[in-house]
Design a protein around this nucleic acid. Structure first.
Lengths: 205, 205
DNA sequence: GCGCGCGGTTAGTGACCGTTAACGTCCTTC
DNA sequence: GAAGGACGTTAACGGTCACTAACCGCGCGC
């Protein structure tokens, strides 16, 4: 069958594989109702096949979640590393780039952002450790950058600040509707994040 | 039996009711593994009774979650309103008080904070609407204060900013260990939150 | 044109889980 | 000191759910 790659050669954005379709819908459903709250029949129905047909593509429900979480963590870290390379050592532009990248991610892949810190414990041990390790490395990228900018900040504090800003940036799923529009939201989040980090510089009361 | 009220008259902090014990453990377990991920037997075991004994205290598993979520929402709103009263109309001190109150809450009741935005959809319709309504009112308190301080900010933007700062303040559960210590964390979150809100004033690029 | 494997289907199975039933045991109270 | 209720227990039931079994059409390579 293949179903892959457009036949005519004009391989536009590439039609999504069945696997990709399934992952997409599974991510949405898991984010909406929680891993245990979604049945395989629902996931199947969301892509037009029914129930056990999913087992032609994945070993099980767990495998879908694992692939989602590992994938997202890898992409985040990869993106972060690319920005470190591109920053040529300037921590100011690097932090700005990291913030922008994370905002893009948060706005483009809302369900994944939600899953990322919510369903980690449902993974098999090895997958969970892998995801944790990737997450840790991503955080360390940020922590190093922040401490580069604010050398007086102790490490534990910098790490807490980074997690806090993640919480800030990842808050968009809670606003389902009523967002000020993509561009404005992007700008707003950017301003808020930089405002928060900026407060690290002035240890006032 | 009663089990309530210390016998000698020195009624210290008051021994927790069985109900309260259950709610406490249920909150912890729900936060750790998700509502559907926890069995009633586990909740029972956590308080030393087993399985169906819970039904002497609650109508069902849903009832526990409902009581937790409604309770937390009510306490948040109540605390917020009290601070509005106490602020005597000064938006600066009011915002500071709201931030401090929310930080206390986030640090004292981590499991509840987690549940609050994660398991809302598992509620029966009426309970869910009640919680949503309480949450909405709490948010509006903040939005009004923020707009009082930054009149140029459009409402949708102020609301998004408030949600974002909630995400920031509620990030502490993600730091399980490695927090800089209660006092330092409190101070850090306060600085970050005010830094973020402060950035609303300067709409620069 | 024939196998064959890919991607579906429906039916069934075993486990788990929330809830109820039936029963027992103290403590309290008159 | 008997009655009654608060608080547990274990056993069982019913439903749901992930997963497996058995079966099937169809497009492709040879």
């Amino acid at each position: 069958m293949s179903t892959r790659a457009a036949p005519g050669g004009t391989s536009r954005v590439a039609a999504p594989t069945r696997r990709e379709q399934i992952l997409r819908e599974a991510a949405r459903l898991f984010a909406e109702r929680g891993f245990h709250g979604v049945g395989v029949d629902e996931i199947g129905a969301a892509v037009g096949i029914s129930g056990p047909g999913l087992y032609r593509h994945f070993a099980g429900k767990d495998a879908m979640l694992a692939e989602l979480l590992v994938g997202i963590s890898e992409r985040l870290l990869e993106g972060g590393r690319a920005r470190v390379e591109a920053s040529a050592g300037d921590p100011d532009t690097l932090l700005a780039a990291l913030v922008d990248g994370h905002i893009d991610f948060a706005l483009d892949d809302r369900p994944l952002i939600t899953l990322h810190d919510r369903e980690l414990d449902r993974l098999r041990d090895d997958d969970r450790h892998r995801v944790r390790q990737l997450q840790r490395q991503y955080v360390e990228l940020w922590v190093a950058t922040v401490r580069d900018l604010h050398p007086a900040t102790p490490e534990s504090e910098a790490r807490a600040a980074v997690h806090a800003v993640f919480g800030l940036l990842n808050s968009t799923p809670h606003l389902g509707s009523g967002l000020p529009g993509r561009g404005a939201t992007e700008a707003l989040l950017r301003r808020l994040a930089h405002g928060a980090f900026g407060a690290l510089g002035v240890p006032g009361a």
